[in-house]
Design a protein around this nucleic acid. Structure first.
Lengths: 335, 335
DNA sequence: CACATGTGATGCAACGTTGCAAATGTATTT
DNA sequence: AAATACATTTGCAACGTTGCATCACATGTG
């Protein structure tokens, strides 16, 4: 821990170049009033010494933390969601001065305390939240505080805010059309977490598209609280049901796995008696079910996009330019 | 963003109580030379105002960042590893002043730059690394710098350091014994990442236990570089192999899924012709393969333990007391 | 009464940075 | 030659915290 040599600060550079502290500081921040010669000298010295501005100093003086905070939802629906999201963010901040702090949530959506903490202690320059609800209180808080944030998911608030979202309506539309094209007459949507805006978008679009395609539309709600074992049970019950649907759309990887397990154990051959399309976010499901149709959401890319939007938001870009959707990527495997 | 009211600092408390800044600071840090009455007054005021020490101020003055850094390996072997680990860490730091920053890695094990950055910029008080190798250069760097860290995984360095590790030897032993008890005569160990200490521990223990149990021991190495599709192919080839093993031990969830997929497609009924035991770290596999034996590693708990060890290390606890192993938890499902 | 001993509280400098106000130096104008 | 303009550089204070050295005051000692 005793590294002997002292830290390289502005002072070090000042001493080395014979310039004043202020000049060095100004120069490093690109002061245009300085002589080119001076600026070169400073840059050289800084590079030679490997100068990196002290985060605490900057933060104390300017209030800028150079930190972005990810509030990590505890949801298990999407496999490896955390890793992909974090890698996406990490990729987008390499080369910037930003660090990423992650605040995991345990219970679902109780995170107003977390937001409150960040807001009142100015512990980050911006926040990324996921699994956003239509009237998400976290969003409300940050809008009220005029604090930079971006949500993975849209809301119903009147005041606009930065977001990046999966185009769920498109997802539902694509899935329904695909199933209809395969001859399905009776389609079931298996969907979880109804506290999410996503949920509403999918259900609404699902019903509309099903009506248009002339197929029966059923929705299996409240599956968010089910354990994998219970979900598996649902699959078995479905398999045994004489009125079972001939097409299924599943919006979560975890539930897909359990459901398919149950259906298969119940004697259903997927792709024959029953068609299934699932939302895919990790690489595992395609390995598991190589012949099954899926529609992909790229969480890594989402992390990157969220970060880019947030950094722009922090830098003052108007909010209208900070609202983007990710197109679903269909992966049709069979006929 | 304009919150109007000024931040609560020591000064605020000083003004409120009529005491000096120094006294307030001293009192809050538990100065025993102060009158009890004074200390009470300060504590009251601090609580009333909701005082939280400014991180930048503390950090600038003391050098303490109150940050721990997790270097997140890009490996996909263990499903939801990142979320579980982060939640474990998050749980262990609630109530402390520590924040967690996460630094994702993209390529495998190139993270000496990351460590170097943390070391030279003192950007955290301690580091957690995972997927540790026997002569992990990151460990070497931090030992040399006498910087607080804890590794998820042991090493072969002479100088001791803090670690928490899964008891891989025990894992291999349990698995072999179980397979032997089920009548297996020819056991295959499917294992990845040979850059990891874990790898060596498992292979060694596997061979030893197999010899003791009198069963044939084969090792399928180099599977770390295989894609899920290729791994699936391995499963199919195994199924078709006339000399195929009658027992398989798999150390990774991703590979287990692909392998089982391939074996099943190849016509093998697991649990009958071939026995399989896998290492389980997420909740998914038991759902997928409810009848299959597994041995669990609790990554959430590991995150918590790593954190506790690290915080103790930072506070100066001797290293001998900071080396722990996690017992494998067998989940035998059938006979 | 002068002095030492405690007890309790405080002043001050420093950590590294930034931005304003001011100073210095050089060139141009009257 | 003095005044003005401009170009370039710098001193200083402040952000919030801590810890050392010091101080004010009361009590006890010779």
């Amino acid at each position: 821990m005793a590294s002997g040599i002292r830290r390289v600060t502005l002072k070090t550079i000042a001493e080395m170049t014979g310039l004043s502290l202020s000049t060095v500081s100004l120069s490093l921040r690109g002061g245009t009033t300085l002589k080119q010669e001076t600026r070169d000298k400073v840059n050289e010295a800084a590079k030679a010494l490997g100068y990196v501005p002290d985060r605490a100093g900057v933060r104390l003086r300017t209030g800028k933390t150079n930190v972005i905070a990810l509030v990590l939802d505890g949801s298990e629906d999407s496999i490896d969601f955390a890793r992909n999201m974090i890698q996406g963010i990490g990729h987008a901040i390499t080369g910037t001065r930003y660090h990423l702090t992650v605040i995991p949530e345990f219970e679902r959506h109780n995170s107003t305390e977390t937001i409150n903490y960040i807001l009142s202690n100015r512990t980050a320059d911006g926040v990324i939240i996921t699994h956003t609800g239509p009237r998400d209180p976290r969003v409300q808080m940050m809008i009220d505080a005029d604090f930079p944030f971006v949500s993975h998911g849209r809301t119903e608030f009147y005041t606009p805010h930065a977001y990046h979202d999966f185009h769920s309506e498109e997802f539902a539309g694509l899935a329904v059309k695909r199933l209809a094209a395969k001859g399905c007459k009776d389609v079931l949507l298996v969907i979880g977490d109804d506290s999410t805006t996503n949920y509403h978008n999918i259900v609404t679009s699902f019903r509309k598209e099903a009506a248009r395609a002339g197929v029966e539309a059923r929705v299996l709600e409240g599956t968010a609280k089910l354990s994998p074992a219970e979900m598996r049970r649902v699959g078995m019950d479905l398999a045994a049901d004489p009125h079972r649907p001939d097409g299924i759309i599943s919006d979560s990887e975890m539930r897909t796995i359990a459901l398919v397990g149950g259906l298969t154990e119940g004697g259903v051959t997927l792709g024959r008696e029953v068609q299934l399309i699932y939302k895919q976010t990790s690489g595992i499901l395609p390995t598991l079910f190589p012949k099954m149709d899926s529609i992909r959401e790229d969480v890594f890319a989402a992390g990157g996009e969220l970060t880019r939007l947030l950094l722009k938001r922090i830098d003052g870009t108007p909010i209208k330019e900070l609202q983007t959707l990710a197109e679903p990527q269909p992966h049709w495997r069979s006929g």
